[in-house]
Design a binder for these strands. Structure first.
Lengths: 192, 192
DNA sequence: CCATTAATAAACACACTGTTGATTTTTATA
DNA sequence: TATAAAAATCAACAGTGTGTTTATTAATGG
């Protein structure tokens, strides 16, 4: 069981996190100062430094939490084959998680976001979903590698657009579209 | 004829630009200070402020130059149809330009890059290449819109990977791959 | 209730910023 | 090559955010 953290710490961190997400909707993270953030949520500046080194370390900390949560749910129901129905359920699960955390995920992946987080997201997908897909194509031609990257970055870009859309489609819809897109491209690769 | 700019200005800006590209390979742009940059290229800090407001404005200025150059060559030979051989030549042209400016483009699109620049790049491609492609599909289903985004972001991601590769394939190769990928996906959309 | 822990407040040296005014160096060109 | 114009340098400035410290106040869990 996870240890219970002091209510004051929970409250402080939640306030800072919400405040950061709020500020990131208005401006780029590089323009956000510690002073500005603590003013936004009315917390003493010293308190910030009790929890985080600086704004970027705080962001990484948040990113890590998100990654851990996703990884956790990945380990619970690991993926075997891309074509399996289990895989389909898994993809739905990911999209659902993203929707639940729309605000912060949108901030991180959006125009004011963090390029490094985009890369980490791509890496995570690569390690879990894509590598099993790549295993089906033992060849290693530039064609395959670049097609792989094309799909990976395309998926993340598509998901980012979905997160920022006003009236987004359901996670089920997105998972289905993803599946269809990849099925087609996979087919094309095989036949080429 | 473009006016000739004072050699001192050319040299100073070139030094600053090269220095920024160098620093961006090592660290994120948000961590780069004016003081650090002028130290890197051994130029007086006041001189920097004669040319740019700050690091970000300098980056935007560089981005604008790149955009203008690409837009310029677009207007010279406008694209009619995606399938035409002219379009193919155009895509080769773009990839060639990117290769010539590999250093700075890689810095801007890479892991330490600028999310806003990635967006602007996507927008530029969208306005020129993609919109003519989209005109072929007057329907406006979510499927199409997301597939469009998937291709757009996938292309930029693939290109970014190509720019950062050690021994990259030729622009011709990339243009050909792009063409084949899109031809396949376009085919899939039509048949669905 | 009480010991523990978190949050606050004030103060500090430090670094980077953006600007100014005076001075030196380089440039274009006449 | 001489010269006026323009660019680069240099030193100094107040202003702001940083990161840390120390003492004090407030909230929490048991």
């Amino acid at each position: 069981m996870a240890e219970k953290i002091d209510r004051r710490i929970r409250k402080t961190r939640a306030q800072l996190r919400a405040g950061l997400a709020r500020l990131m909707q208005k401006k780029n993270i590089r323009e956000i100062t510690v002073t500005e953030l603590v003013d936004e949520v009315d917390i003493n500046r010293s308190t910030f430094y009790l929890h985080y080194e600086d704004i970027y370390q705080m962001l990484e900390s948040i990113e890590q939490e998100i990654m851990d949560e996703i990884k956790g749910s990945i380990e619970k129901n690991p993926i075997e084959s891309f074509a399996s129905s289990k895989a389909q359920a898994f993809i739905v699960h990911i999209f659902s998680y993203l929707e639940e955390n729309r605000e912060i995920c949108n901030a991180l992946l959006g125009p004011h976001g963090d390029m490094a987080f985009v890369e980490r997201t791509e890496k995570l997908i690569s390690e879990t979903v894509f590598d099993s897909l790549a295993a089906q194509f033992p060849r290693n031609t530039p064609d395959l590698i670049y097609t792989y990257t094309f799909c990976l970055t395309g998926l993340v870009g598509m998901t980012t657009a979905w997160l920022s859309a006003d009236h987004p489609e359901s996670p089920q819809y997105m998972a289905d579209l993803t599946h269809r897109l990849f099925a087609n491209i996979t087919q094309d690769i095989i036949s080429s």
